[in-house]
Design a protein around this nucleic acid. Sequence first.
DNA 1: GCAAGGTC
Length: 592
Amino acid sequence: MRQSGNKYIKNWDFTFQFAEHGQCNVTMTAVVGHITSLDFPAQFGWGKCNPGQLFGAPIVEKVPDDKRSVAQNIANEARGAAKLMIWTDCDREGEYIGWEILQAARQSNTALTEENTWRAQFSHLETQHVCHAAAHPVRLDRGAIDAVRARMEVDLRTGASFSRFLTEGMKRRLRGELNQEATLSYGLCQFPTLGFVCDRYTRVRLFVPEPFWYLELETRKERVKTVLSWARTRVFDRLVATVIFRQCMQLLFATVTHVATAPTSKWRPLPLTTVELQKNCARYFKMSGKAALDAAEQLYLKGFVSYPRTETDSFPRAMDLRKLVQRQTQSAVWGAYATELGNGKFSDPRVGKHDDKAHPPIHPVVFTDGSGLSASEKKVYEYIVRHFLACCSQDAKGSQTTVTLQWGPEKFSASGLTVLERNFLDVFPYVKWASSKVLPQFVHGEEVALSRAELKSGVTAPPQHMTEPELIALMDANGIGTDATIADHIEKVLAREYVVKVAARSGALFVPSELGMALVKGFDAMLEGVSLTKPFLRKELECDLGAVVAGRKTKDAVLATTVEKFRAVFAVCASKQAMLVASYREVIKENQ
DNA sequence: GCAAGGTC
């Protein structure tokens, strides 16, 4: 092992027998994410050109200062190499990073080309799997490389142009009204994130409560009171409710039309992904998604848990999960449960539908009793272990009885649950599933006397303000950001003071600031038929990038149409900038 | 001073 010029990177020399190339002298080294970043040449820097020019400006690849040692190490080690083999994550970004590595290597060795560069395909680090990857390399995937390059260009051009436009334009026109220190940024991910928060806020503010009416029945049998709810749930017309109620009231009995008892179960969780970890830490521990991810990363660097950024919700078949369960038996808290699993209660985890082809689900690797960990690291470690043990358990089993009564023309029902086997629930206290009161024995066709029949009324409740787990779920569902960046985008809209985090008894809530609300209202007012505050443009881009990967579209075609689309949107915004300013003053006035 | 993506 030799040190490199970067303290995180070591160079390892060994020999290896490759199936295709025979015995080779190998140097294995590493990078730390992307090596290069896109930027505009100096003459297109901030304040040096009209922001609208950035849609057509040249773009250059730059090695940022903190990556110079990484690029230099690749160049040093590649000198004299006959072949290059890429072992980065097997996802789109990993493919592009592989291409960046090839460019860095070519700085010292132009004999290296895409023709003698090989790509190992692997998604976890089991020995067998890694050896198979070494023996069956493929080529770098041009489609994936092109797709990432297109994404980078679109993000840069749109982000830089709109951010400069907003920061310069808004501050100049709102001198004395807007904080002159502020940076007003735009990004294809941060604006939809802001949009979700504003949308919810507006729905809460504009909510008009609506009265509704419903029928409720009660029977008393075997001295047990059973409350039955209406099959229609509720109606919003008082007259309709009254007419139905009068009709029913002529009958003093209801008839049992259906009674059934069926087994039911509460499913154990799917193998843990990053998004799920962040949502659940936010929900159960009131941690921010960012704090949860940071803690998980620390745990990973200390060797306690697997790689924390993954979208995969199924374990590789070859993984020895029982061994991982066994390591948890020494815990004073969940050790007994792990021991039970080892003694025959182990069950193969459920198989989810997501696979990022790069990492397995998050799981504990090494046991720790938590000493030496921070408070958040302890919480996150315990969550990861309990989630993993729950995955390797059986579903909870129960029995559900449902009874349906016919009262005149209307149907009513009640159900009772008996939990028979708790299984994973014993190690996973975050999920609640409890037996309800046992229903009395109803018999099909039986006429039941009613102890109470009521026409009740209620009022619809407003939606609640946005919570962090809800926001994370919305971003995930709409393709805003990735497992690794969702928390960053939330931090970004907070840092820009577009969104404010308000403490509440149930956990933090997100509401837009006046500035955030003004931007969303302003952009929505300026534009027709296209929205910068909704997730659709990002989704369209992701869809086009998928087409590039699949070879249905070329990078240049996607870039041409996407950049043109944003150039046109930018032109509209630039011509209607007064509307943004008006929107800001309007929001301020409304709040006074 | 700008994006979003990767990561110790």
